[in-house]
Amino acid sequence: MISFKLNGREVKADAPDDAPLLFVLNNDLGVNGAKFGCGKSQCGACTVLIEGEPARSCSIKVSSVAGRSVVTLAGLTENGKPSKLQQAFIDEQAAQCGYCTSGMIMQAQALLDRNPNPTDADVRSALNGNLCRCGSHNRVVRAVLRAAKEA
């Protein structure tokens, strides 16, 4: 049994120590958002925040988050409403299929937490490890810059 803080709430998961965090989030704890894309930390679709830092949950053993804080896409919402960053993604219509978006938003949140006023180049650099196949990159960058401006 592994205990950790998920989106501010203490949770327990009855999962093998070496199970990937992503599978435990998805299958044991019913968390959406973080998605399987490659299983090799190459695409960023599974990104969550661990102690505020972006991490690829497909390649992290669940045991390594015991006692730590994990935040997923739903954890960013405020009283059930989209956060500023999430709203900025809606306002900029910053996706097509939206499969990679959860990872993008988590990665971008980590950037904004560290650097509240990023430049276009800062955003591109922070998101360079998050792959998008639909070609929504420029909209994503605009969404992150909008969220920073409106913060």
């Binding site: 399987f36 896409l73 919402t77 996706a95």
Partner: peptide
Amino acid sequence: FPRLDFPGKFTGQAMFVQELRPEGL
């Protein structure tokens, strides 16, 4: 007119086949 599926996709609702979890899965 904004896309109808984006709010759910951007806030962590189950929107994709990968996020289906029927009983007894």
